[in-house]
């Protein structure tokens, strides 16, 4: 059905195919054993209660928090949280779009299925962390816009998890900025287990090997006894043993703590 609220162009518009650019990927300056440097800034959106901006490689994420705002209607004893993650419309194809999005979803209208998945995961992560009972009869809206992603990564599986991890970290900082009470700042780790190797942010070459591998994203509340608030696992290995899972948790926890330390020092320096 046509969208009568947006001006999307003539009905018979086709989007011409854009051939994949080959070999344009710049060799990554960092190795795959350490976390690349990232840039973080808070309070960038004036009409939001809290906001943060994060840049890592070509990935640019902006998060703004609106609320707590009063809601109409009957009394509820805790705040309701709604999350909306949106890619800018020029980001096509969206990561994992071939699996989840239908052909009609162009990103110029409502949320696509991939965006729904991201929003759901983020909501799952932040819900256990917020003290919602402190804000009765209110709503808290979280808006994430993904301005740019690491383009070549779109082909490999881990990139959505990588992007997801940074969305969660950025959202935590935005929540700190908003002053909404929370139990802890959420951070996370995302690694790939490939045989005995542990790879952080896999490169294109790592993707070409046929070895079975598991990509895992785990989000933690590190201060609260490393409570896990989110798990997302992808990979081409069919059975995931307990040892592998333990290793995955340990590696992600290690990475999460490093990111947490970075965010801590950023927060201490900026809220002095």
């Amino acid at each position: 059905m046509s969208d009568r609220r947006r001006i999307l162009g003539p009905a018979n518009t086709v989007t011409p195919n854009i051939p994949n650019s080959t070999g344009s990927r710049k060799p990554s300056a960092t190795n795959t054993q350490s976390i690349p440097p990232f840039f973080l800034k808070h309070s960038i959106i004036e009409n939001a209660n809290g906001s943060a901006y994060l840049e890592i490689g070509n990935t640019l994420i902006e998060v703004s928090i609106f609320g707590p705002r009063p809601i109409r209607g009957s009394f509820v004893d805790h705040a309701s949280v709604s999350v909306e993650c949106k890619f800018h419309p020029y980001i096509t194809p969206q990561p994992q779009a071939s699996t989840f999005n239908s052909a009609k979803q162009t990103g110029r209208t409502g949320l696509t299925d991939v965006e729904h998945r991201i929003s759901n995961y983020l909501e799952g992560c932040i819900l256990p962390c917020l003290l919602l009972e402190k804000y009765p009869k209110s709503s808290i809206d979280v808006h994430v816009s993904i301005i740019s992603t690491d383009r070549d990564d779109l082909k490999n599986n881990a990139n959505l998890l990588w992007l997801m991890n940074w969305i969660v970290c950025c959202t935590s900082v935005a929540f700190v900025d908003s002053g909404i009470e929370m139990r802890d700042v959420i951070t996370g780790g995302q690694v790939r287990l490939c045989g005995d190797k542990v790879i952080i942010h896999p490169d294109l070459e790592d993707d070409e090997t046929d070895e079975p591998s598991v990509d895992g994203l785990l989000n933690f509340m590190n201060l609260k006894n490393d409570e896990i608030v989110g798990i997302w696992i992808e990979g081409n290995e069919t059975d995931l043993s307990t040892e592998k899972m333990n290793q995955l948790v340990e590696e992600c926890k290690k990475m999460s703590k490093i990111i947490r330390a970075n965010i801590n020092s950023y927060l201490i320096n900026s809220f002095k």
Binding site: L8, N47, S64, F66, R69, T109, D141
Partner: peptide, 13 residues
């Protein structure tokens, strides 16, 4: 053909 989106924390499509 412009599609304008203003970020102001309102939910819904």
């Amino acid at each position: 053909y412009p599609v304008v989106e203003i970020l102001r924390g309102r939910m819904g499509g």
